[in-house]
Design a protein around this nucleic acid. Sequence first.
RNA 1: GGCGGCGUGGCCGAGUGGUUUAGGCAGGGGCCUGCAAAGCCCCGUACGGCGGUUCGAUUCCGCCCGCCGCCU
Length: 304
Amino acid sequence: MTAVALVGVTASGKSETALELAIRRGDCEIVSVDSMCVYRGMDVGTSKPGPEARAAVSHHLLDLVDPDQDFTVTQFQRAARGALEGIAQRGHHALLVGGTGLYLRAVVDDLEIPGRYPDVAAALEADLDDGHAAPADLHARLAELDPVGAARMEPTNRRRVVRALEVTLGSGRPFSTFGPGLEAYPESGTTQIGLSCPPREIDRRIEGRFGRMVQAGLVDEVRALVARPAGISRTARQALGYREVLAHVEGGAPLAECLEEAVRRTRQFARRQASWFRRDPRVSWVGSSVEAQGLVERAFDLHG
RNA sequence: GGCGGCGUGGCCGAGUGGUUUAGGCAGGGGCCUGCAAAGCCCCGUACGGCGGUUCGAUUCCGCCCGCCGCCU
């Protein structure tokens, strides 16, 4: 039994392709690799597979947590391992489908993700917030403790600098010793197929999709999230479409403008995804759903 | 017809007689190990046209063109 990953930018048609194949074959289960589909109650805005799709084929890693929960790669990695094990036990093939690059790498390359040191991180954040230190200062500190790690990031990238320092200080082990970084592309047991699509076409689809999402009740979905007493977590509220509609629902911004913004930002996101997947030499790219299905099947049958 | 104002790179928008020619947005490229649908980095000599003044004009003057406003 094998695992194959179908990757691509948002709106490239991966989900439909995967579903079609899985229904036809009947011997594989779909594993979502999507950082926002893990949230319950965030359905229309995430283009989450619906009830029909889920009735037809087993889907995994959807609806893992409530929207008031923060969610991170590590949790995803853990859940993915469990899902993959179960699929293997059932004698099925696993078809990973999604566009969250880091999450996919965590699974495909079994990344050793360093632990968390909340006190250390909080102290660093506090220094930055108080103005006692600038990200560049922290980067300089990191450079002394872990030159290799420091060299791998921009001194201005606050988030990454803080995390690297958090790990180095907290664990007493240089951040860079946890792995070669994402620039290494080791042999992997997971075959990766990329479904490509011309950027102009992607742009068109994104715009059309937002229109349909609104028809399908995106705004009401966001209202329902807002109405939850527990609120919306930091990670959940940054979801594309939600963040912008939130500005309308909570902040009173004109809906039309929020939607335009959502479309724009989703396009930019698609570019970032493309650049992420493009650099992974292990991905075999094809330009159509049919070809993608062909390659996935070949991988299944070769190892299955 | 008269008077006044304006005309800056795809858009918005500062500014100056001459070293590096603001900034923002959009766009393009790249990065990424616990917020990743996030975050970060890099990339733009443009001053409506024609003359003139000047060692030197986007910046000063004149004319023309185009907008905008006011007036008769």
